[in-house]
Amino acid sequence: MSYSPKRSRPTDSPQPLLWSGSLVSGRKIRSRGWLRRLTFRLTAAFLGVLTGALVPGLAFGHSVYIFAWGQSDQICTDSYFSRKSPVRGGRVLMKTADGTLIESATTDEKGSVCFNRPKAEGNLLFVVEAGQGHQADFTFRAEDWPALTDDTVALSPPPAAATDLATADISSTEIASVQPTLDINTIRAVVRQELATQLGPINKQLVLQSEDQTPGLREIIGGLGWLAGVFGLAFWWSARRRRAKTP
C-alpha cells in the first residue's frame, strides 16, 4: 500500500499507515481516510471469518443416496443426502426390475421407510424422490433376501408334544430326552434367522460406507487441478492466436 497524493501534509519519513489516520487527526480528509480503512478492514474481516466459518461445512455434499436391505418379511430403505443428513418426508417408490410400480411410501425423520415383502420375484428397484430435482435409485437383488424359504417351514409351530415338554418343569434328565426331538434343521433355521437379525445393521453400515460418495478432499483438489489445467490451455490458446495476429 502506498500513500495517495491526496494526503496533503508532506512527511519526511514514511509513517506507519496506522498512525497517519488514527493518531494524527484534525483534517477532514484524514478522518475520512481512517473511516474508509476501517470499513475496508471490517469487510476483509467479514470475508475472512465467513470463509473460516464455512470451511468445516465442506465435508457435506448434496447428492442423494438410497439403500435397501431385506428382513424376514419386509424390506427397509434408508435415504440420505450425506451420512448425517437423512431425507425427511421424501417419497420412495418400490418397483419391479422392469419399472412397474409396486408400492410407494414416505420416509420418516430418520430417512427410512419399510415395505412388506412383495410377492413379485426377482430384483427390486427402489427410487427416492427427495424433491427439488433430487433423485436416486438402488437395485435390491433377489439373492440378497435372507435365506428364509425353508426356515418358515421349520419355524412353524412345533409339534404339540414338544410344546408340552417345553412348558413342563424340566429336569436335567428330561432335557436329555428332549434333545433328540429338536432336529438339526430346526436349530440351523433358528440360528440363521437370529444371525440375519443381528447382521442386518452391520450389513447396512458396510453398504453405507462403501456407497457414501460424499466428495472428499481428493475430489476437491482434483477438480481445482482440472480447472488450473483448463486455464493453462485457454491461456496458451489465446496467446497462440495473439501471436498469429501480430506480424
Binding site: L54, G57, H62, F81, V87, A130, G131
Partner: peptide
C-alpha cells in the same frame, strides 16, 4: 457447491 446449508427436509 460443497458449502452446505442444512435447512428443512432438503439441503
Amino acid at each position: 457447491s460443497l458449502i452446505h446449508v442444512p435447512i428443512g427436509p432438503s439441503s
